[in-house]
Amino acid sequence: MLRLIKIDFYKYSKSRTFWVLFITYLVTMTASIVGIEQFLNSTMLSKVGNDSAIPIPKFSFYAFPYVWHNMAYLAGMFKIFLALIIVFFVSNEFSYRTLRQNVMNGMSRNQFVWSKVLFVVLLSLAATLILFFPSLIMGLIKTKELTSEIITRKLFFLPAYFLELMAFGSFALFIAFLLRRSALAIGLLAFYYFILEKIIAYYLPDNIAAFLPVKAMGNMIDVPNSALMKLFGVNFREYVATQDILVSSAWMIIFVAAVFLLMRKRDI
């Protein structure tokens, strides 16, 4: 396994495109985490107005333990970017035909797929850390009374976020292996994510639509309750539902298994 990681490390560690994309993600993510409160307070709340009749309670996005939920939800909106990195680099192996070179030099087809699964794991892990550190720091700064209990109480949103990325990354992997051309694969991924699934979901009853891949993965971390929402009596889940975990894990396994299947019989 270490050898497979090493091979992929050699492939990507000197790719300028990879670092440009990765650092763009890192910077965007960190800036979003640090800036989101300011942004929302200045845009959303100003519409309601400070002199509004309803007193809007002051609250912080960053207070423990809610920071984990809030920031994991925020970061979830950027997962398409990570998926594009996966699609781009995996389909390049087809367009450079380096997959051929790898296989004829002694990599088995399964090892090649595993190396890409590991790539998804490592990228998801990195993204989870990119979520963890700025959130931790912001939480430490903005929480008045710090106890270790309050810091770790809702930490389970991090593994949930990791699973969300893994499942979505597997989806991206599947599309890349299926279409083998980066433009086509990126196009289909974006089309499905932004449009197609929404249309399908529209025609399905809610309890069935919840089984659609993007929907299930997105449902895992529900919209955080803000004080304002509570005011209107809206109440979202503050936990991660077992059903969403199971459905997302099932999709992840299906997509990865489909990639192995695709590679078994096909000419490459």
């Binding site: 050699y10 492939k11 070179q101 002694g106």
Partner: peptide, 20 residues
């Protein structure tokens, strides 16, 4: 068939690792 953005040496490094 090689990675265009890598040097000749780095390309061979990948292949040497695959071939043990």
């Amino acid at each position: 068939l090689f990675y265009p953005y890598l040097s000749g040496y780095d390309n061979l490094k990948i292949i040497a690792t695959i071939k043990d």
